[in-house]
Structure formats: structure tokens, C-alpha cells
């Protein structure tokens, strides 16, 4: 007779989160999030991606505590030591710097670049796409033509040319990648806007006298976010790889900064005799972009089952 007596007791967190009929807006939102999380958790590969990513982020945050050496300290007497030798977990590079410690600090740079691009590029795309979709007419034609032009460009080459013009450095690399990455987001945002524009609730707000700026920022943007988030997560691996490529070419972070792409570039000369100098940073890049790919696939399956092709 437990069921009969229980209604008076407070529901557990789990019951509250799985409620069929939420009683408040906050609960409704929490239920949505929790069910998404449950679906996501059942996807093993996506969870692996999330775990790798969380691990790397923790490494980046606690880099000063986890590092065994100063990542910038050179010691020519200790150069090119193999992994595990004399307390250097992954060995040392051509200037005797500890590769393990440099990797930890390099994670900060990679995450910094990805976060910056992932904030700038979708924002540009969101603004252009929603304006084009909401305004329609010649504004739409012009903006979408510009988007198509950028979409037709080879990305890495264009980023190279941008960096060449702006000068090498992390911020310029971020700017160059963002300038070449926004067009897909603009297309998505425009498509979403077109479906939202003629709905009854937008008409209702228009009748209340809301202006276009208010409608776009307060009512259209929130509805575009979820599809943009999926796309951004899927693109993050690409951003990492492009950033590492620019670093490898000497156009991203400048030495002595422990950027992973630049570390591979430094180790390139020694690849045949001292394999670890170039190989280990590459594994780090591989791990982080693999994590983003797994996570993106999982998120897409949860948030957008139609697109997943399953």
C-alpha cells in the first residue's frame, strides 16, 4: 500500500525531473534537459567523447599543478630525451623542454582558440542569417549571395591569406578561421528564421508593436540556438585541425608558446631519429578532435534525430 501513502511525501529529484506534467516553467525546462541527458548518456561513443573532453579541460585548468617542469625552461643538456627518461614522462624536445608539461599548457591554447572561434563565427552567422531571413527581399538576396561567395572559398587557403595580411599570431588566426567559418551558420539561421517568420506567435508580437530588432533578438535567436549548437560542436574538430595547421605553418601561436601544431612543426626535423617530439603532440590534437567529433555526433542524435541518418 505504499503508493497510497506516498503522495504526501516530497518527490525525489529523479521523479521531479521525469514528471509527465511539469508544474512550473523551470521544471519543464529541467525535464527537457534531463531527458536529453538520459538519451545522450545511452550513447556510448558520445560519452567517451565527453569524458575525453572533460579530461582535457581539467588538464588545461590545472596545468600549473599537473606539470612536472616549467614548459618554457630550456636545458640543452637534456635535449631529445626519450619518453620516461629522467622523469620526463613524454621526453624532451630539441631545446630540452619537457614535452608533457608543454602539452598541458598547449591544451589551454587549443581550448582558447576553439572557444573564441565557436563564439565569433556562429554569432556572425546568426546575425547575417536572421536578418536575411526576416527582412527578405533584396536584403536577403544580397546577404545570401555574399554567404555563397564565402562558402565557395577554400577555407584553409583563405585563412592562410588572411593571416598573411594580418600578421601571424593566435588572435589573427582566430579571426581568420572565424571569417572563413561563418557561412554555414548563416544558412542554418536563415532557414530557421524562414520557418519561424510566418508563425502565429510572431504575428501576435508584431501586432503588439514589437520592432524587428526586438523580434529577431528576443524571439527568433533563442529558437535558432539549438541547431547552431549542434553544428558548432560538429565543426569544432575542424576548427582545431585548421588552427593546428596554421600553427604548423608558423602562422598561429608564435614560439616559444607550446601550441600543439607548432610543436609538431618543431619536431618535424627529428621525426626519423626522435619520433616522440612530433608524434606526441599530434596524438593530443587527434584526441581532442576525436572527442569533439564523437560528442557532436551524439548531440546530433539527441537533439535532431531526423538529421542523424540513423
Amino acid at each position: 500500500m505504499n503508493e497510497l501513502t506516498s503522495p504526501s511525501t516530497k518527490p525525489t529529484w529523479r521523479e521531479w525531473l521525469l514528471a509527465e506534467e511539469p508544474t512550473s516553467r523551470r521544471q519543464a525546462r529541467a525535464v527537457g534537459w534531463y531527458q536529453g541527458w538520459l538519451a545522450f548518456r545511452s550513447n556510448t561513443l558520445a560519452m567517451i567523447g565527453l569524458i575525453i573532453l572533460v579530461f582535457l579541460i581539467v588538464c588545461a585548468i590545472f596545468a600549473p599543478l599537473l606539470a612536472t617542469h616549467d614548459p618554457y625552461a630550456q636545458d640543452l643538456g637534456q635535449r631529445l630525451l626519450p619518453p620516461g627518461f629522467q622523469g620526463n614522462l613524454f621526453g624532451t624536445d630539441s631545446l630540452g623542454r619537457d614535452i608533457y608539461s608543454r602539452l598541458l599548457f598547449g591544451a589551454r591554447i587549443s581550448i582558447y582558440i576553439v572557444l573564441l572561434v565557436a563564439m565569433v563565427a556562429p554569432l556572425i552567422g546568426l546575425i547575417i542569417g536572421t536578418i536575411a531571413g526576416y527582412a527578405g527581399g533584396w536584403i536577403d538576396v544580397v546577404l545570401m549571395r555574399i554567404t555563397d561567395i564565402f562558402l565557395a572559398f577554400p577555407r584553409l587557403i583563405l585563412a592562410l591569406a588572411f593571416v598573411a595580411a594580418l600578421g601571424a599570431g593566435i588572435e589573427n588566426a582566430v579571426l581568420a578561421i572565424a571569417l572563413t567559418a561563418w557561412p554555414p551558420y548563416a544558412r542554418i539561421a536563415r532557414a530557421e528564421t524562414l520557418t519561424i517568420r510566418n508563425t502565429d506567435f510572431i504575428h501576435a508580437i508584431q501586432l503588439q508593436g514589437a520592432g524587428p530588432v526586438r523580434i529577431i533578438t528576443k524571439h527568433i535567436w533563442p529558437l535558432c540556438i539549438s541547431s547552431l549548437v549542434i553544428r558548432v560542436t560538429l565543426d569544432m574538430a575542424g576548427i582545431i585541425l585548421t588552427a593546428a595547421g596554421l600553427g604548423f605553418l608558423g602562422l598561429g601561436a608564435q614560439p616559444p608558446s607550446p601550441e600543439w601544431g607548432a610543436m609538431i612543426s618543431e619536431g618535424r626535423k627529428y621525426i626519423l631519429d626522435h619520433w616522440w617530439v612530433a608524434t606526441i603532440p599530434g596524438l593530443a590534437i587527434f584526441a581532442i578532435s576525436l572527442a569533439f567529433n564523437l560528442l557532436g555526433d551524439g548531440l546530433r542524435d539527441v537533439l535532431d534525430p531526423k538529421e542523424s541518418g540513423q
Binding site: G245, F248, I271, W275, A278, T279, G282
Partner: peptide
């Protein structure tokens, strides 16, 4: 596919050189 989308091409080139040439 997953490996191909995640690996930096310049790094794979280096590892390929190390393995098949070196």
C-alpha cells in the same frame, strides 16, 4: 571515417614517413 575526420593531415604524413620510409 571518424579517424579520417579527426586526424591532422600533416601529422599523419609525418607518422607515415616515419613508418613506411624510416
Amino acid at each position: 571515417g571518424l579517424i579520417g575526420y579527426s586526424m591532422p593531415i600533416f601529422w599523419l604524413g609525418l607518422v607515415g614517413l616515419l613508418l613506411f620510409y624510416g
